[in-house]
Design a protein around this nucleic acid. Structure first.
Lengths: 278, 278
DNA sequence: CGCAAAAATAAAAATAATTTTCATTTGTTA
DNA sequence: TAACAAATGAAAATTATTTTTATTTTTGCG
């Protein structure tokens, strides 16, 4: 409960009918006041503007504006993702896609476990080999991760084929690290492969969405994303972006903590790729 | 993460002197705007009220009020990031990574060509085959695109191997579409493959960063991203995210404009993947 | 119950804030 | 340097907010 809601509660009994209506409307429509003018709000509450000003003053504000600003500060600004409709123009679609990405990244930040992320970095840096499992949708994230790690000079390899994953998993050792990427955390092949990898002694890191899922059972380190996949996004990009942003954070941490070695490796990579450009 | 500060940063160079003064004042006096009326702020910034309204509108608000409310909602959030340093914690790194992504998406929105995007969608929907070329970094974006298009029932295929690209390109027909993804637009292999594809009569669509590059010569439709790669992004994620967001916009447009067919295809996909989950 | 007195409220007036319009200035290009 | 476009500020128009005032409602008491 925020400060203003509290004040309203305390002062509620002192209010007249019309003011109580305002108080009720505000608590039933949190945040909705923000775009409204005093005239709009008066109509919504079925009272006059003067009453709203009195209401604001009762709460200790100089007027309606001050009340509204204070309410705005207490509102969680995390934007709400709106669903895409058939009538949307491509620009509108792009806007909504971006908005979804914002939401997903902000929510992922909330569930980010720095400790786990750092442990993952340390394990990856000291690993002999790193294999990354991802199927279908998550294959591209796995590919991205392998690219990044390769560029800093680590022995990384992405597996996007369930047979290869099994074979690879069975040959891992205690010195190796396996990274499994699965939004749902329920992909049979990934979970099975991870199980085998763990049996082989490798350290297992999972990147998956929050919530209980089978993958957790076989994960030494869990890195969570948070995005509402199923709702209106038939095939959401946002979860992938969250995965990528976590991978990118891993990457940068490693870049700066392997210092010389990593930077040299990156420079070498850049150099060798130069001949591939016009 | 402060979205408004970000928008200001992105749009700063487009502003006139007076608007820049507003932008500067706001960033130097975070939060102080809240109790000020537009008249007060105009005086503080040494400009007219009209300029402030224009400034608010440039940022995408309906007016001064909306800007102020939005700023109020963000007053508790953290500051804007600079570059990643070795001393950063993983959380800080994650923040900065997100910030980069936001920047890139906003800038890409600025250069988004809806017409081109729609033409691309139409071409893709009516194509017999769609092949997507991406190498190295862009391979994961190509893979992502092929996944999406496959799911809506289109005959899409990603090629992340320069030989395969050449072979595929030489066998395309007028009915086919080729999508080339390259941040720099200067990747030899991609440009060469695109050239061959065009010679074969296929419609060529490129997703590349703004600015002149060899790939433009062989592109029927150009879809631009915009991201500052060089800064602290030795290997930028943000350009990839911008590519993915464009691909996602394409995807959604197609989903809603192939109507029944696409939705059925997606449902079929979902259904068939169900057996792969725990 | 009925009549004040007090409190609460809404309508209207006054004030203030915001937005729009339009003329002027500034900068830019040929 | 003229011609054009962009940016800006002054003023007008609109809209929002606050204050005042009249009316209504509630409450307390004989």
């Amino acid at each position: 409960m925020n400060k203003i809601a509290l004040k309203i509660k305390v002062l509620y009994k002192e209010m007249g009918k019309a003011e109580k209506r305002i108080a009720d409307w505000l608590s039933n429509n949190t945040g909705e006041i923000l775009p409204l003018s005093i005239v709009d709000l008066a109509e919504k509450c079925g009272c006059s503007e003067a009453t709203i000003v009195r209401f604001a003053k009762r709460l200790g504000f100089s007027g309606y504006q001050e009340l509204k600003i204070s309410l705005a500060q207490e509102t969680n600004s995390s934007s709400i993702s709106t669903s895409i409709t058939p009538d949307d123009t491509v620009s509108e679609i792009y806007d909504k896609v971006c908005n979804d990405i914002y939401c997903s990244l902000e929510m992922t930040k909330k569930v980010l476990d720095s400790k786990a992320l750092m442990r993952a970095c340390e394990k990856i840096m000291s690993a002999k080999r790193i294999v990354i499992f991802g199927l279908g949708n998550s294959a591209s994230a796995a590919l991205d991760a392998s690219h990044k790690l390769l560029r800093v000079g680590l022995d990384a390899c992405a597996c996007s084929d369930n047979h290869m994953q099994m074979i690879t998993a069975s040959h891992l050792t205690e010195e190796d690290v396996v990274i499994a990427i699965s939004h749902s955390g329920s992909s049979k092949d990934i979970v099975d492969a991870l199980k085998i990898a763990k049996q082989s002694g490798a350290t297992s890191i999972s990147i998956t969405n929050t919530g209980k899922s089978p993958i957790q059972k076989y994960s030494d380190i869990l890195l969570y994303t948070s995005s509402e996949e199923t709702k209106h996004n038939i095939l959401a990009l946002s979860s992938r972006i969250a995965q990528l942003s976590i991978i990118n954070a891993l990457y940068f941490y490693i870049v700066y903590h392997r210092s010389e070695k990593a930077l040299d490796a990156i420079k070498e990579t850049e150099q060798s790729l130069l001949s591939k450009k016009y």
